[in-house]
Design a protein around this nucleic acid. Structure first.
Lengths: 193, 193
DNA sequence: GTCTATACAAAGATAGAC
DNA sequence: GTCTATCTTTGTATAGAC
C-alpha cells in the first residue's frame, strides 16, 4: 500500500516525523522540514496542502504501521503472549536508546490542546488501539499461564502504556539512559509473576 | 518567600502555567497570556524580560512548591509511607479530573528539545527530585512494613513517576476519565502488597 | 506599571514562472 | 515538481509617552 505517495512526499513525512518526535508539533515549521529534505518551503505544499494535513498523514502512517505489526504478532500462532509483550516494547527501547526521540504520539500528547482536530483524533486512536491490544495480550497470557498478575487486565494494559510513554519523556529530560530498560524489565516482571 | 513579585507578575505566571499545562510552551504567546491577564502584550516584558525567563520562573515555582510539600510530608513524624504516597498522587488525580490539564513538567517534557536551556534544566530537576523522593518513601515503607513489593525501590520509583506522567497525557488524549484513578489504584496495590 | 506604536523575524500559505 | 516572489498574520521584543 503505497497510497500513491512520491519519494519526496515520503521523505517529507520521514523528516517531519523525526522533528516532531524531537521537538513537538508547534515548534517545527515548513522551513525546518524543507531544509532537511533539501527542498524549498513552498515545495512541501505541493505534496501536502497545509501543516495540519502533513501532521495528520504522519501520525496516521505511524499508527497504521504500528497497528499492522501488532495485529500480525497477535495472530501469529507460534508467538506466545510473552513474545508479543517483548515485541511491543521494542520501539520504546529503541527510542529510549536515542538522546532526543520519544514516541511520536507521546510527543504530540504533551501539546494535545494545541493540535489541529484531525491530528488529535489520530493520536487518541493510537492510544486506544494500543490499550485494547495490550489488554488482549494480557488476557491471552493469563489463559496460557504465561502471565500471572493481580488486578484487571484492562487496567494493567493502561498502566503498561502509561509507564512506557512516561518513561520516554522522563528519560529524555533527565538523561537517565537506563530508565526505559529498567521500567520495561519491571513491567515484564510484574506480569510474568 | 514572595521574591518581591507584584500581584500582576504572579497573575502572569498563573496564566502562563495554565496555558502551558493545556497547550505546551511553543504554542502559547505573550498575546494569549496578556489577553487572559487583562493587560497588553508589552506589559508582560516589564515583569519578565523575555519568554524564556517567564517560562523558567513558572517551572521553577512549580518545582519549588511541589518540593516544599514533599519535604514537609517526608519529615512529618505522624505520616506513614502510605500517607506520603497518597499525598503524592493528589495533584495527578486533580489534573486527571480536568479535561485539558496535565502536569506542567509532563507537558514541557513532550517538546523538550525545543525548550530554552534554562527551562529544560528546571524540568529535568523536577523529575530527578521526584524520583529521589519517591525512592525514599518506598524504602521507608518497606522498612516500616507498610510496603511490600519485589524489585529495586529506585526502579519502582521511576516506574511510579513514569506511569503517573503517562497516565495524564494518555488520559487527556483518549478522554478516558477513569484512567488516572485506575492507574493510581493499581500502583498503590503494587506497592502495598 | 501600563499603554500605543513600531521594529523585525518567522510563520503558514498563494501565485505564477520554469 | 520545484522554484522565486509575495502576502498576511503572528510572534518576540523595544522605544517612549503617560
Amino acid at each position: 500500500m503505497t497510497k500513491g505517495r512520491t519519494d519526496t512526499a515520503v521523505k517529507i513525512m520521514d523528516v517531519a516525523q523525526e522533528l516532531i518526535q524531537s521537538c513537538g508539533y508547534n515548534a517545527i515549521s515548513f522551513n525546518h522540514i524543507a531544509e532537511r529534505v533539501g527542498i524549498r518551503k513552498p515545495s512541501i505544499i505541493h505534496h501536502f496542502p497545509n501543516k495540519e494535513a502533513l501532521g495528520q498523514a504522519v501520525v496516521r502512517r505511524y499508527r497504521e504501521v504500528f497497528a499492522a505489526v501488532l495485529e500480525k504478532v497477535a495472530e501469529a500462532p507460534d508467538k506466545t503472549a510473552i513474545d508479543a509483550f517483548d515485541l511491543y516494547c521494542t520501539p520504546y527501547l529503541e527510542f529510549g536508546g536515542t538522546p532526543d526521540k520519544i514516541c511520536l504520539c507521546g510527543a504530540l500528547a504533551g501539546e494535545f490542546m494545541a493540535l489541529p482536530e484531525n491530528v488529535r483524533a489520530e493520536v487518541a486512536r493510537f492510544f486506544r488501539e494500543h490499550i485494547i491490544w495490550l489488554e488482549g495480550i494480557l488476557r491471552r497470557g493469563v489463559e496460557s499461564g504465561d502471565f500471572a498478575f493481580k488486578g484487571d487486565p484492562a487496567i494493567k494494559a493502561k498502566l503498561i502504556l502509561d509507564a512506557l510513554q512516561g518513561a520516554l519523556i522522563v528519560k529524555r529530560a533527565t538523561g537517565d539512559t537506563d530508565q526505559v530498560t529498567q521500567v520495561v524489565a519491571a513491567l515484564r516482571d510484574s506480569i510474568t509473576g
